[in-house]
Amino acid sequence: EPELVFKVRVRTKDGRELEIEVSAEDLEKLLEALPDIEEVEIEEVEP
């Protein structure tokens, strides 16, 4: 069974934007590691 992958769009407080694809596990780590995120948009990517 393929692992869930999420497309994550992040905007930081200083206005930088970042778009990455991460696994569910990595997404959890990412959110814990970035306390200064202003906006996060997450969508599931079809395998």
Rank of each mutant, 00 (worst) to 15 (best):
E1C: 14
E1Y: 12
E1H: 12
E1K: 14
E1I: 11
E1M: 12
E1N: 13
E1F: 13
P2D: 06
P2W: 09
P2I: 09
P2M: 07
P2C: 13
P2F: 09
P2Q: 08
P2G: 10
P2H: 09
P2Y: 10
P2N: 08
E3T: 11
E3K: 14
E3N: 10
E3W: 09
E3M: 11
E3F: 10
E3S: 09
L4D: 02
L4Q: 08
L4F: 10
L4H: 08
L4T: 08
L4W: 09
L4M: 08
V5T: 08
V5R: 15
V5G: 03
V5W: 13
V5L: 11
V5N: 06
V5P: 02
V5Q: 06
V5Y: 11
V5S: 08
V5H: 09
V5I: 12
F6E: 01
F6G: 00
F6A: 01
F6N: 01
F6V: 04
F6Y: 10
F6K: 03
F6R: 03
F6P: 00
F6W: 04
K7C: 08
K7W: 04
K7Y: 03
K7V: 06
K7T: 03
K7F: 04
K7N: 03
K7M: 06
K7Q: 03
K7R: 12
K7I: 09
V8D: 00
V8R: 00
V8H: 00
V8W: 03
V8I: 08
V8Q: 00
V8K: 01
V8N: 00
V8C: 10
V8M: 03
V8L: 07
R9S: 01
R9C: 09
R9D: 00
R9N: 01
R9K: 06
R9G: 00
R9V: 03
R9H: 03
R9T: 03
R9Q: 00
R9M: 02
V10K: 00
V10M: 07
V10P: 00
V10Q: 00
V10N: 00
V10G: 02
V10D: 00
R11F: 05
R11G: 00
R11E: 01
R11K: 08
R11M: 05
R11S: 02
R11W: 06
R11A: 02
R11Q: 03
R11C: 08
R11L: 07
R11P: 01
T12G: 04
T12R: 06
T12E: 01
T12W: 15
T12S: 03
T12L: 15
T12V: 04
T12K: 03
T12N: 03
K13R: 10
K13F: 05
K13P: 04
K13E: 03
K13M: 07
K13V: 05
K13S: 06
K13A: 07
K13N: 05
D14H: 05
D14L: 05
D14F: 07
D14E: 04
D14C: 06
D14V: 02
D14R: 04
D14A: 04
D14K: 04
D14S: 07
G15W: 01
G15A: 01
G15D: 01
G15I: 00
G15C: 03
G15F: 01
G15L: 01
G15P: 00
G15R: 02
G15V: 00
R16A: 05
R16L: 08
R16F: 08
R16H: 07
R16E: 04
R16K: 07
R16I: 07
R16P: 01
R16Y: 07
R16G: 04
R16M: 07
R16V: 08
R16N: 05
E17Y: 15
E17N: 09
E17P: 02
E17G: 03
E17M: 14
E17F: 14
L18D: 01
L18W: 15
L18S: 03
L18M: 09
L18F: 15
E19C: 12
E19T: 14
E19G: 02
E19S: 10
E19H: 12
E19F: 15
E19M: 12
E19Q: 10
E19Y: 15
E19N: 10
I20A: 03
I20R: 03
I20F: 15
I20Y: 14
I20Q: 02
I20M: 10
I20T: 03
I20L: 10
I20D: 01
I20P: 00
I20S: 01
I20G: 01
I20W: 14
E21V: 15
E21I: 15
E21A: 06
E21S: 08
E21G: 02
E21C: 15
E21F: 15
E21D: 05
V22H: 00
V22S: 02
V22I: 08
V22D: 00
V22R: 00
V22T: 03
V22G: 04
V22C: 11
V22A: 04
V22E: 00
V22Q: 00
V22M: 07
V22W: 02
S23P: 05
S23I: 06
S23E: 03
S23H: 07
S23L: 07
S23K: 10
S23A: 08
S23Q: 05
S23Y: 08
S23C: 07
S23R: 12
A24P: 06
A24F: 10
A24Q: 07
A24V: 07
A24N: 04
A24E: 05
A24K: 10
A24M: 11
A24G: 06
A24T: 04
E25A: 13
E25V: 10
E25P: 07
E25G: 11
E25S: 13
E25W: 14
E25T: 12
D26S: 06
D26A: 08
D26L: 08
D26R: 06
D26P: 01
D26I: 05
D26M: 10
D26N: 08
D26Q: 11
D26T: 06
L27P: 00
L27F: 05
L27I: 05
L27G: 01
L27S: 00
L27M: 04
L27H: 01
E28Y: 14
E28I: 13
E28A: 13
E28P: 08
E28W: 15
K29D: 04
K29V: 04
K29M: 07
K29T: 06
K29Y: 06
K29F: 06
K29L: 07
K29C: 08
L30T: 05
L30H: 02
L30W: 11
L30Y: 08
L30F: 13
L30N: 01
L30I: 07
L30C: 06
L30E: 01
L31Q: 02
L31R: 04
L31I: 05
L31A: 02
L31T: 02
L31V: 03
L31N: 01
L31F: 06
L31D: 01
L31K: 03
L31C: 11
L31G: 01
E32D: 08
E32Y: 13
E32C: 15
E32L: 14
E32K: 12
E32S: 12
E32I: 09
E32A: 14
E32T: 10
E32H: 09
E32V: 07
E32R: 14
A33W: 13
A33H: 08
A33Y: 09
A33N: 11
A33M: 13
A33Q: 09
A33I: 09
A33R: 10
A33G: 09
A33S: 14
A33F: 11
A33K: 06
L34P: 01
L34E: 03
L34F: 12
L34R: 05
L34C: 11
L34D: 04
L34S: 05
L34G: 03
L34N: 07
L34Y: 11
L34T: 05
P35N: 14
P35T: 14
P35K: 14
P35L: 14
P35E: 14
P35S: 14
P35W: 15
D36A: 05
D36V: 03
D36T: 04
D36C: 10
D36K: 04
D36N: 09
D36G: 07
D36H: 06
D36E: 08
D36Q: 06
D36I: 04
D36Y: 07
I37S: 06
I37D: 06
I37C: 12
I37K: 04
I37Q: 04
I37T: 06
I37R: 05
I37W: 13
I37P: 04
E38M: 12
E38G: 08
E38T: 09
E38H: 08
E38S: 10
E38Y: 14
E38R: 06
E39M: 14
E39I: 15
E39P: 03
E39G: 09
E39S: 14
E39L: 15
E39Q: 10
V40H: 03
V40Y: 13
V40M: 11
V40W: 13
V40I: 13
V40K: 02
V40R: 02
V40N: 02
V40P: 02
V40E: 02
E41D: 08
E41W: 15
E41V: 12
E41Y: 14
E41L: 13
E41I: 13
E41T: 13
E41C: 13
E41K: 09
E41R: 09
E41P: 02
E41F: 13
I42Q: 02
I42Y: 06
I42E: 02
I42K: 03
I42W: 11
I42N: 02
I42F: 06
I42A: 03
I42S: 02
I42C: 12
I42P: 02
I42H: 03
I42D: 02
E43N: 08
E43R: 11
E43Q: 10
E43H: 11
E43D: 05
E43F: 15
E43T: 13
E43P: 03
E44S: 11
E44A: 13
E44W: 12
E44Q: 11
E44M: 14
E44T: 10
E44D: 06
E44L: 15
V45D: 04
V45Q: 06
V45G: 05
V45H: 07
V45R: 07
V45C: 08
V45N: 06
E46T: 12
E46I: 13
E46G: 11
E46R: 14
E46L: 13
E46P: 10
E46H: 13
P47R: 13
P47D: 07
P47G: 09
P47M: 11
P47N: 10
P47A: 09
P47Y: 10
P47V: 11
P47S: 09
P47T: 11
